[in-house]
Amino acid sequence: MGRLSVELCGVELDNPVIPASGTFGYGYEFAELYDINLLGSFSFKGTTREPRFGNDTPRIADCPAGMLNSVGLQNPGVDRVIDTELPRLAKCFRKPVMANVSGFSVEDYAYTCRRLDGEPQVGWLEVNISCPNVHGGGMSFGTDPKAAASVVRAVKAVTTKPVIIKLTPNVTDIVSVAKACEDAGADGLSLINTLLGMRVDLRTRKPILANVMGGLSGPAVFPVALRMVWQTARAVRIPVVGMGGVSSAEDLLEMLMAGAAAVEVGAANLIDPWACKKIIEALPAAMDRYGIKNLQELRIGE
């Protein structure tokens, strides 16, 4: 294994950097900017059973050191992802990709995961039970340990690929949800999804977002994310993918030191399309500065 390589659910990654779902499309647009094969992997746009436009606009708001989004899972639906998006991706990305899946019922999750299970390029299923921007689904599965476990069991029954459950921070006790997912057979966890927030437009005296509330991401959430990764990683035996405001090689090292097996980078891609490339390139020098020989040695308590 190389100096930067890590392992995630039995699959080796050249480095721990994974662009987060919803900030990297289906990859090929970023491939026009740089060779995306230098990434560890990436998590593609949250995919649902049926095509979705998402929520009304405005669905973006700027925040101190971050942003709100209430996009609401715009995606072409799993059939078109398989017929159109994945073949396009295969032309510019030769590594296993993380398939991000969302749903509005346990059956939805199982259906979409079963469809994606047949795709050879899908290395992991990242099951989003934490989207704050959809009603009657998404986050409601991630805020209740029993509901979370029911999604895990349904998905595990239809796939042989590693199943990573993406958790919401909008709960009292993330560890109880994490443990419920582990007990139900999850192969890994990823966290955090965005934190619910809102902003008001002073001129109109109305919320900026048409959906009123949206998910906060960016550097503002980094300390919260780091804390939750640390709490979760020490409570479960399955790997945890850390994310939330990671914007530099140093942030990434903090996440790994807190117990993350790999790290997703989200909002940073939206203000600098080359952010992930820069983080990977900055990693060796940052490791040198802190006397880190390789990333494998960083896992606390191992």
């Binding site: 919803g22 900030t23 499309g25 606009t57 669905r59 973006i60 942003m67 715009q74 900026i208």
Partner: peptide, 17 residues
């Protein structure tokens, strides 16, 4: 004109029908 996130097609913030 619409409120944008990234401005280059990644975030789906400024979509329209």
């Amino acid at each position: 004109e619409k409120r944008m996130g990234c401005g280059f097609g990644a975030c789906m913030g400024c979509s329209c029908r």
